[in-house]
Amino acid sequence: MTILQGCAQCLDSTRATPPTVQAAYRHAIILLASAGATLFIAGTLLLRRQR
């Protein structure tokens, strides 16, 4: 019967991205964003401080 295909996705979900990799991406995104944001704020404060 073709109506029930079984749990092909269960097997498949293990093939998807593991949590450690997801976490690595998350950390990398946060690292990039926060470094950029910090530099932006530091530059602006520098302008503010000079006179």
Partner: peptide
Amino acid sequence: LGGDLMFFVALISVFFVTKASG
């Protein structure tokens, strides 16, 4: 040096992701 910092931050981000990937 701020620009330089971003250059290395980009490399380090890729470092962490590549290290975890499989």
